[in-house]
Amino acid sequence: MMRKWISVSACSAALCLCSVTGAQQTNNNPPPQTTPNRSDAATQHDQRSDWKSADHTLATCVAIANQEEIAIAKFAQEKARSSDVKEFAKMLVKDHQAFLEKLEKFAPEAARDGYLHEKHEPSTNDKTRAGADKTTGVEAKVGLAGGTVKASAGKVQQTAGTEETADRHHGVNFIQLHREIAAECVRNAKEMLTEKEEDKFDECFVGHQIAAHAAMKTKLTVFERHASSELKDVLAKGAETTERHMKKAEELMKELAHADSSSKRDSSSSKKE
Results as ranks from 00 to 15, higher is better:
residue 118 E to K: 15
residue 112 R to Y: 04
residue 106 F to D: 04
residue 129 R to N: 08
residue 129 R to A: 12
residue 102 K to D: 09
residue 111 A to T: 02
residue 112 R to V: 08
residue 123 S to D: 00
residue 106 F to C: 05
residue 120 H to C: 06
residue 118 E to A: 13
residue 124 T to F: 12
residue 116 L to G: 01
residue 129 R to M: 14
residue 126 D to T: 04
residue 128 T to W: 12
residue 123 S to N: 05
residue 125 N to I: 11
residue 128 T to F: 12
residue 129 R to K: 08
residue 108 P to Y: 13
residue 115 Y to D: 08
residue 130 A to E: 11
residue 123 S to W: 04
residue 109 E to S: 15
residue 122 P to I: 01
residue 102 K to R: 15
residue 105 K to G: 03
residue 132 A to P: 01
residue 102 K to F: 02
residue 106 F to G: 00
residue 116 L to P: 03
residue 121 E to G: 01
residue 111 A to P: 00
residue 122 P to L: 10
residue 118 E to L: 07
residue 106 F to H: 14
residue 103 L to Q: 01
residue 122 P to A: 11
residue 110 A to W: 00
residue 110 A to L: 09
residue 123 S to R: 13
residue 119 K to Q: 13
residue 102 K to V: 02
residue 106 F to A: 05
residue 102 K to N: 12
residue 124 T to V: 12
residue 131 G to C: 05
residue 133 D to H: 12
residue 115 Y to L: 04
residue 118 E to D: 15
residue 117 H to W: 10
residue 113 D to F: 04
residue 110 A to V: 05
residue 108 P to D: 14
residue 116 L to S: 08
residue 112 R to I: 06
residue 114 G to Y: 02
residue 107 A to R: 01
residue 110 A to Y: 00
residue 133 D to S: 10
residue 131 G to D: 15
residue 123 S to Y: 07
residue 121 E to C: 00
residue 119 K to T: 05
residue 104 E to D: 12
residue 104 E to Q: 14
residue 105 K to L: 10
residue 123 S to V: 02
residue 127 K to N: 11
residue 119 K to H: 12
residue 121 E to A: 10
residue 107 A to D: 03
residue 113 D to A: 14
residue 131 G to L: 11
residue 128 T to H: 11
residue 111 A to F: 04
residue 127 K to R: 14
residue 131 G to E: 15
residue 105 K to E: 12
residue 114 G to I: 06
residue 110 A to P: 06
residue 113 D to Y: 00
residue 125 N to H: 08
residue 127 K to V: 06
residue 118 E to M: 11
residue 129 R to I: 15
residue 129 R to F: 13
residue 127 K to I: 03
residue 103 L to K: 02
residue 109 E to T: 10
residue 116 L to N: 03
residue 110 A to D: 12
residue 121 E to M: 10
residue 114 G to F: 02
residue 123 S to I: 05
residue 126 D to K: 06
residue 130 A to Q: 13
residue 106 F to I: 08
residue 124 T to C: 04
residue 125 N to E: 13
residue 115 Y to C: 00
residue 119 K to P: 02
